[in-house]
Write a protein that binds this DNA or RNA. Structure first.
Length: 480
DNA sequence: AGGCCTTTGAAGATC
DNA sequence: GATCTTCAAAGGCCT
């Protein structure tokens, strides 16, 4: 498996996990992957033709059957009957994952098992083609909804993008695939939450069949509503509802239809970054270990644990994320993150006003507090949002790690072993520090950055809503 | 019903 | 080029 250092090539600095280097690695990897893809594509064209043929057959069968997404692949028997073993491998790799899931479901592995097992599975997927066997029939899937489809056992999964990528024959999208082509498959019924569903369910993997009916392989992709036109998991209809049938559209004016079509334009989600992949994998574990259910608090713990990970461990996720982006690019060459801009409501004006009271940009901070613009590292860590940490000569901002997870209601969870302490420059504006007379805020995001770096005693588990905590922090800052 | 919270990283937008 | 903004997941909470 290529590692991050493979991207360095002596070009980068020492920061092999930083985003820029990561990008470089990604680009290098992309070329490498392109070569691999070409190699794969250079394989027997007959295989592809047969695969397409099998897809057509399955689509036809599915068209006469249930209109459930993934039902097109419900003709696994046909594929088997066709005796195209290789085709089965491509169409139903989820069976491999199911067998892997069996191993993941061992109850005694409730803690500390996910990462190793998942990555063992990952390695297995990466290096070995999925076994094709008799009886690889895709199971009919229940209605696809994000939350309802979460694994019952909280088995962590990696993104389907990566699962797809792990195919022994990853099929690159044609370079000329258009956005329209990408969107067409979404006109299939009830395809909501594909990306969330799939990325959250390695064991169930109802999406995997859909994944392997890549647009480049879907002869029906040009036919709206074609059963074979099953979308990529990253594609999520905006409303989760089925689009109108063509005869319904005729009832509307062209302008209305156009506007509605634009409004209903399905969303291709962003590929998950390394931390998101880590969160998806570890969330269930944290929930099991802690008494928390709120994602905000869980994310705080995960954020700290993320920083507590070794570089090697983080590198695994960076590698996964890189492959996710690689595959996403291959599948949706015309897609841009900009496409999803504005689909989430912008944060409140109060949020922006609050940011105005913050120290500001690193450059402003340096100027404000008399730091050297060239030598003093002053930055908002890698979030690049607020300058609230001041580190001379540091190329990377340490994590704002509080003493332990008990402050977040997770007493069982051990504190990160190598939680870095962070420095404050001499002359650091003490008014930015939390008042020692007041109870230290429990939120590590902002509060930890404003607290003294020396780890204090475990903070009492908070019981106030996080919004209240934020208000308290805000009031403290304003009082300061 | 839908936004907020909270995290980090990636990428687009802005200056 | 540096900085800022938005979005990606998650699910309880709040309006």
């Amino acid at each position: 498996m290529p590692q991050l250092d493979s991207s360095g090539g002596g070009a980068g600095g020492g920061d092999d996990l930083g985003a820029p280097d990561e990008l470089l690695a990604f680009q290098d990897e992309g070329e490498e992957q392109d070569d691999k893809s070409r190699d794969s594509a250079a394989g027997p064209e007959r295989d592809l033709a047969e695969l397409k043929s099998s897809l057509v057959n399955e689509s036809e069968v599915a068209a006469g059957g249930a209109g459930v997404p993934g039902a097109g692949a419900g003709a696994g028997g046909e594929a088997e009957a066709l005796g195209r073993q290789h085709t089965s491998q491509r169409l139903f790799p989820d069976k491999l994952a199911e067998s892997l899931e069996d191993g993941l479901k061992a109850p005694e592995c409730a803690s500390g098992m996910y990462k190793d097992t998942v990555y063992s599975a990952f390695n297995l997927l990466m290096h070995y083609p999925p076994p094709s066997g008799a009886g690889q029939h895709p199971q009919p899937q229940p209605p696809l909804h994000n939350k309802a489809s979460q694994p019952a056992h909280g088995v962590p999964q990696l993104s389907p993008l990566y699962e797809h990528f792990s195919s022994p024959h990853p099929t690159p999208a044609p370079a000329d695939i258009s956005q329209k082509q990408v969107h067409r498959p979404l006109q299939t019924p009830d395809l909501s939450g594909f990306y969330s569903l799939t990325s959250g369910s390695m064991g169930q993997l109802p999406h995997t069949v859909s994944w392997f009916t890549h647009p480049s392989l879907m002869l029906g992709s040009g036919v709206p509503g074609h059963p074979a036109a099953i979308p990529h998991p990253a594609i999520v209809p905006p409303s989760g509802k089925q689009e109108l049938q063509p005869y319904d559209r005729t009832l509307k004016t062209q302008a209305e239809s156009k506007a509605e079509k634009e409004a209903k334009k399905p969303t291709i989600k962003k590929p998950l970054n390394a931390f998101m992949l880590y969160m998806k994998e570890m969330r269930a574990k944290v929930i099991a270990e802690c008494t928390l259910k709120e994602s905000a608090a869980i994310n705080q713990i995960l954020g700290r644990r993320w920083h507590a990970l070794s570089r090697e461990e983080q590198a695994k996720y960076y590698e996964l994320a890189r492959k996710e982006r690689q595959l996403h690019m291959q599948l949706y060459p015309g897609w841009s993150a900009r496409d999803n801009y504005g689909k989430k409501k912008r944060r409140s004006r109060e949020k922006h006003q609050e940011s105005n009271t913050d120290p500001g940009s690193p450059k402003k901070c340096r100027a404000r507090f008399g730091l050297n613009q060239q030598t003093d590292w002053c930055g908002p860590c890698r979030r690049k949002k607020k300058c609230i940490r001041y580190l001379p000569g540091e190329g990377r901002c340490p994590s704002p790690v509080p003493s332990d997870d008990s402050a977040l209601g997770c007493p069982e969870s051990p504190a990160p072993q190598d939680s870095p302490s962070y420095l404050l420059l001499p002359g650091f504006p003490t008014e930015l520090l939390a008042s020692p007379a007041e109870p230290a805020p429990t939120s590590p995001g902002l509060s930890a950055t404003l607290s003294l770096p020396t780890p204090g005693p475990p903070q009492a588990p908070h019981s106030t809503p996080q919004s209240t905590q934020v208000q308290q922090q805000e009031s403290q800052r304003q009082a300061a």
